[in-house]
């Protein structure tokens, strides 16, 4: 009898997995609301990618509406959203700061050289600590931060033209009108 119990193990393991997958279906990873929305953006001061001697802190952009875009050169989905960011930068639609997440700075610089650099500047978060403070779930993610330094919106996954037109741009305009 004891031996027979062992043979039930694979089935039990699978059922547990299936239960998680079922919950996972309900949790669309692109739509998880962030507990940080409506709260002040977590403080950080990190070296800049192109000038490691200078640091950047979220306070430096106080008084402006801006985007914090989490990216990495190893992130393939970042390539998908990159043309959108480059286009936004060309139109000077909104200042975009990059948070270069768990990445080697050489790779990051090369990546920007190859695909274009839409960022006002990029901040190096090599150990991912800033990412943890911001509750980064996966790369890419984009945070909309208002003039008072409060997070107003979080885009999980690539920033699509549709997301820009339908959600982010109206929010930015509303924030600027004040």
């Amino acid at each position: 009898m004891k031996r027979a119990v062992w043979f039930l193990l694979p089935l039990a393991a699978f059922l547990v997995l299936a239960a998680f997958l079922f919950r996972g279906l309900g949790l669309n990873p692109r739509e998880v609301p962030s507990p940080l929305i409506g709260k002040p953006a977590p403080a950080f001061a990190r070296p800049q990618l192109h000038d490691a001697a200078k640091t950047f802190s979220q306070k430096d952009l106080a008084g402006q509406v801006w985007l914090l875009n989490v990216w990495a050169s190893w992130c393939v989905a970042c390539r998908e959203e990159h043309p959108v960011l480059v286009e936004l930068a060309r139109q000077k639609a909104v200042p975009i700061v990059g948070l270069n997440y768990k990445d080697a700075p050489e790779d990051a610089k090369a990546w920007l050289k190859q695909f274009g650099d839409p960022y006002m500047l990029s901040v190096v978060d090599r150990d991912g600590r800033v990412g943890i403070d911001y509750g980064v779930y996966g790369v890419p993610e984009t945070f909309l931060i208002d003039a008072n330094g409060v997070i107003r919106h979080k885009q999980i996954g690539p920033l699509t033209p549709a997301a820009w037109e339908k959600t982010i741009r109206p929010k930015i305009e509303a924030l600027r009108r004040g």
Binding site: F20, G24, L27, P29, A72, K102, G135, V139
Partner: peptide
Amino acid sequence: TLYPLVLDSLDLGKISVGPP
């Protein structure tokens, strides 16, 4: 592959597992 999903289902937070 599934770790981020499992943690998320258990409300233990959100993490990403990359090549490292």
